[in-house]
Structures are given as C-alpha cells and as structure tokens.
Design a protein around this nucleic acid. Structure first.
Lengths: 214, 214, 214, 214
DNA sequence: TATGAATGAGAGTTCATTCAT
DNA sequence: AATGAATGAACTCTCATTCAT
C-alpha cells in the first residue's frame, strides 16, 4: 500500500492472478462437461482444452495430469456446496420434519437438478480407480451430509416426532431415493422419463411416514 | 446329412457345441471380473483372455468386439435372474408385507451379495456410452423388477395393508436403499464399513412403515 | 523327439522362435544405426521401426522402452566381442610386444573399423544418463579389456621386455590413442581426415617405445 | 549525440552494456551446468533460465535458440583458453621435454580439472548433430592445440631430444591419454576411481619415453 | 479352433518458442 | 529489459483388432 510504486504493479499482478483463476474455473467447467459426456477414461485432454477455448498445452499449466484434473474438478465443484448448505440450512428452527424436508429439497435443487448429478455418477463409475478421490468424497461430502441428516433425525426422536429406528444406515436410506433419481435421470430417462418434482413428493412422503412415530 | 449318419456326427457336434458354450461362459465370467476391476475403457482384451485362460485371438472368435463382449456379459449375467426370481417369488401367498420383504431380500441375496452388484455399477458408469445396453437393461431388468414391486404394492393397497401413495417413482423408492447399499459396498466400504444385514433391516423397516396404512 | 507328434509342432515353434530372434537382431541393428545418427534423445522409436522394416508397435513387443532398447543394443553389440577376442588372442605365444600389438590391432579392426566405434561414442554421450549402462559397460567391456592388457604388460615386465612403470592407468594409457581415433573419425574426419592405418602405426610405435626397457 | 551530452549518456549506456554482458555470462555459465548435467537434447531452456536466476523469456533476449545457446556457450568457454595458454606457454625456453610437460600439465589443470572436461564430452556427444560447432571446435581448439604440440615435438627432434617418429597423428597420440582421463572421470569414476595426479605421471612417463631418442 | 505376432491409430505429456503486458 | 502464460508440434507408449500359421 505504499502509494507510489506498489499500486500499479500489484494491479497488473492482480489482473494476471484473476485471469489465471478464471482460466482455472473455465477448465474445471469444461472438464466436468467432457468427463460427464464420456467418462474419465474416454475423455481426451484435447477435448477439455477445446471445450474451454484453449489449447492442449494450457491444460497442463493448470493441472499436472488428467488424474489431477479429474480430482480437482470434483473438489472444486462439490466443496462450495457445504458453504451454501450450512448457510441455508443451519437455522435451528421448525420441526424436525420441516428441517428434513428442507435438507432433502436442497439436495434435489443443488445436485439433482444441476451438473452435479453427473459428479455423483462419475464417483460411482471411477471411485474404485481413484481411491484417493473416493476417500476425499466420503470424508468431505458424504460424512458431512450424513452428519447433518443424523442430527435432524435424532432431534426428531428427542422431540417425539420420529420413532427410534435401528440406526445402521438410516441417514443413507433417507437419501437413497435421491441417488436413484440422479442415476435414473442420467441413464434411463429416455426410456422411462422421471418427473423429478413428483418423484420428490413420493420420496419425502415415503420416508417421513417411515420415520414418524405412530 | 442322411439320417443314418446323423447320430454319431451330431454327438460330436454336440460335444463341440457344449465345449463352445463352456468357453463362452468362461469368457463372460472373466469379462465380468476384469471389467469390475478396472471399468470398461481401462480393461484390456488381453486381460480378459488371460483371466479366462485363453489367448487374445480366441476372444474374437466368440465376440466381435470389446463393446459386444461387454454387452453380452451384462445380458448373460442378468437375464437368468428373472428365471430364478419368478420361480422363487411368483407364489401368490402371504401378506403383501411378506411378499415385499421376500422381494427385497431376494435382491440383497442375489445381487448385493454377489458379483452382480458390480454390474449395477458398470451400468451406472458406462450407461451413457452404451445407450443400447441401457435400453436393454431398462427393458429387461428394471421394468420387470419394477412391475413385480408395483404389483405387490397395489395388492397391499387393495388388501388395506398399505396406504395409497402418490405413485410416481414409488417402486424405485422402495428399491433405492438397495442401490445405495450396492454402491457403498463397492466404493466407500473401506472408509465406513456397511453391515449389509443391519442395513437391510433399517431399509425394510423404514420402507414398510412408510407404506403402511396408519 | 517322440517321432509322431512333436516334430511338426516343435518345428513350427522353432521356426517362430527363430523368426523372433531374427527380428530382435534386426531391431538391434536398426537401433544402432539410428542412435548413431542422432543420439539417444533425438532418436525416434518410429525411425528405428522403419529402419528395421517394421512398425512402431512391433518395437515394443521386443523392448519395453526406448531406454531398454538402447541398453540391450549396447549389450547385444559388445558382448560377443569377448568371445571372439578370447578365441583369437588367448594363445599364449610370442613376445609380450607381439601380443600387445595383436590386442591393439584387434581393437582397431573390431571396433574402430566397424559400427562399434559409434557405441563407444554413445557411451561417452549418454553414460551419465544411463548409470546402469555405464556400470555394465565398465564391468563387462572396460575391465575385461583392461585385465587382458594389464596381464600382457606384466608378462612383458617379467620377461624383461618392458620397464616397470608406475601402474595407475597404464592399461588405459595404452588404449587411449584408440579412443581418440574413434572420436576423431566420427566427428572431425571431414575437417582433418585421419588415416587409421598410419595412425595405428604411430600409436603402437609410441606406446611400445614408451614401455620398452632401455 | 553532441559531445557534451555524450558523457553521462555513455556512462548509462556503459552500465547497461556491462549489465548485459554480465547477464550473458551468467546464462552461459548456467547453460554449461545444465547441458553438462543432462546433455543437449534433454536440457530444458527453462532449467537454464532458473539456473541463471532469470525467466524463460529472458534467455531468448540473449540467444536466438537452444542451438545458438549451446554453440555460444562452447565458444565462450573454450576460446579464452588460448589467450591463457599462449601467455603461459609461449615462452621459448627450456628443453622440449620440459615444454611438452608444461603443455600437458596445462591441459590437465585447465580442462581435466575443471568444468571444461564436460565440454569435451558434449562435443563427443553432440558433434554429429552440430557440424558447424564441430568445425569450429576443430579449427579453434584442436588444430591450435595440435599445432603447439607439433611445434614442440619438431623442436625436440631438431635438438636431438626426440626420435623422428612417423608423424601421422602423433600430436593426437600425445594428448590421447588426457581425453581418456576426461571421459573416465565423467563416466566410470564411480566404478573405478581414477587418481588424476597419478594418472598424469603415467601418461607423461609413457609418452616421453615413447618419444625419446634411444 | 486357437494362437500370438504384427499393426497403426490414438492419447497423454513435454517443451521450444512467441508475445502481450 | 523482463516476464511467464499460451501454443501446438512432436514423441513415447498402448491396445483393439487382424491374420498367417
């Protein structure tokens, strides 16, 4: 901030750094599109480059290898979700039922209805070849989502809204319908279209009834 | 070709045909193992050959291409399921609840606890690259399973055991927990093990309670 | 040798094995030519293939990598030399002077006047990048050559033909003129041609005089 | 441009020119180190830049291409040698034997015991790919060294110190031991260390005895 | 029928060189 | 003068597929 010299220099540096960050994002977006289209192994680095409007060599200025690009893309696309989720959902008001609905709806809106459902599929597809990524995904996405859902269910049980079920895999079962919907939309929709809104109603209806104290 | 000659000849022919059928099965088994391990794109035809105890060239005597091998493998592994399923489950006795449980249990036993869960994953992974196969899978596996489950639910509703829920995606939601379990075992088990038996109890408990008339 | 079955089979196998060995030799020869022309780093595997009359992929059926090809080529070209050398030179007759001359002449004839002088240059050029190969070359070529020369000199000293010089590097110094000649022929000959025969005379004259007892 | 202005301006110009010359030297030094380490083809321009403490682009402000950098480096490192050599050795005193010893010793001291032995190796390695450089090296280094040595030998013959040998390649043979030592130190020293001082004694002893009149 | 040597298109990656800042 | 982001030609290595034996 010493007025004379640093401002112009750092403004030029800043511009360059911003441009670089923007490029990285463009590449990540392009990578998601290309990997979604054809899967990891079949995707060509050149396709990613073209999709991002650059050249092959440029991709390697930002990512060491195809593997790295894939992992970084998953991270870049999924991590911001929890900032949003925690902002939108952390409010501790309403019944457990309302909070559970809000969580599931958030999931449908932010993942099932967006590019991100492709990431779920890619994790299913490539997980075994990317143990490192599977571990990351479990640690940063799945267990956090699971923890949020588990907290809501326990709260519901305490408040007397929900029955006390045997716990193993309960949170997963609550979300399971959404995983199926994601896969169905991506793979079988042409043969038997799935109406996400109607499906959502069924999903929530079934699960809430299943949880409720009689 | 005259009648008198046909007996010995056809016995030789039979033996040859049997040998051929056996080879085909060995190749299909090998293909499942190899594709499961590394996915379609990464799998090498030579690996399949070695896994089956033959040589590269031989695989091409039985399957035109890698794509064909993959599709044939999925078909060969999944179709027999419905012969079994229809034999074991078609009996029209017991409550809808009992029949639903039997169906879900069959799914856990025959798919989740076997190599076949890998096929489910492969369909998720490769579906978009194999529309033909996705269509086949939907027509022959998914809609048939769906139909069986839908019939049971409708029966339960008629008998007054189950509530009448909004139908869109109901059968899928009933199975969804099983899809999630399959994927979890294959990908995240090392990081958070899933006990299939306990998970099954949760799954069925949640779903049946969700379905039941209050 | 059980007459009926094995002969035709093993003859087919033999033919195939022979063809394979021949291919390998063709590739080694081609590799020597190509590496000699442009050096290791600049050489293209495809050039080697074309030079050998095959295709790129074939080279990799015989050698794992460019590095392996290079190392195997050096070994294949240099090792047979010592079979020859030991056959031709091991005879324990004549004066030390005669034996020394025979050794040096063998070196000129078999290395300096053949493709093999290129290998010497390649070792100089690539040695630091191929420590494994440098070690091999030292162990199998240099120290064996050195040992033969040292034995002759010691014999000469015992017989009173030669003086007793300080030993460090003596064998190397006796050969050094030949190394220089090899390099010169390969690099500076266009600018100042070197007549190998005349050079040989000077080399031997200087060295023998240097060794002789006064 | 008027006389009055020129002093301050030319001092600024001078400083700039000096700075430029210094940069060039730093780049040449860096180039020698990098090329020595990995050879011409494997060396990266960026490595040279980093080694010199600048950036990739800067190298191109001083040298048109990698080839030019290499050639200029060889010239810059070898040419000054003859200024020194002529200063140190031109003195026409002493016996031919003493002068020959001085020359060989100079070679050991200034080349074998310094970075320059790497240049010798690089010329062996890359000569065929750089005919222009090989020619330069021959014209400016080799023939000048050869001329000096030849003069000494002829002087020794005239004085009756040395025999009259057949001349072809005599000067080269006198130096050859040093070439071998340079290569050995660079390549085989780890496997069989070479003591340069002891080797030098052997070299000179052998050669002088070889030359001496009996 | 079975084999495995041969092919060559194709993909990941590198790096000399350029050029806008 | 100096920088370093961008480019794209070029190269190594892989593997589905073919075919002579």
């Amino acid at each position: 901030m010493s007025a004379t010299m640093s401002t112009p220099k750092s403004s030029a540096e800043t511009r360059r750094a911003e441009r670089k960050e923007k490029r990285r994002e463009e590449l990540v977006d392009a990578a998601l599109r290309v990997f979604s289209r054809v899967g990891f192994a079949t995707a060509k680095m050149e396709d990613v480059a073209v999709e991002a409007g650059t050249s092959k060599g440029t991709v390697y200025l930002y990512f060491d290898s195809k593997e790295h690009l894939f992992e970084e893309m998953v991270k870049a696309k999924m991590l911001p979700l929890f900032v949003e989720a925690e902002a939108e959902l952390a409010v501790d008001v309403g019944s457990a039922e309302e909070r559970l609905k809000a969580h599931v709806k958030f999931f449908y809106k932010k993942i099932l209805n967006s590019d991100r459902r492709q990431i779920m599929r890619l994790i299913m597809a490539e997980g075994p070849n990317f143990p490192h990524l599977a571990e990351f995904y479990h640690a940063n996405i799945l267990s956090r989502g699971q923890a949020m859902m588990t907290a809501i269910i326990e709260e519901g049980v305490e408040k007397g809204e929900f029955r006390a079920l045997s716990g193993h895999g309960l949170a997963q079962n609550v979300f399971a319908g959404a995983l199926l919907a994601a896969m169905w939309k991506l793979i079988f929709d042409p043969y038997q279209p799935l109406d996400l809104d109607a499906y959502y109603e069924t999903h929530v209806d079934l699960v809430l009834n299943g949880l409720k104290a009689t």
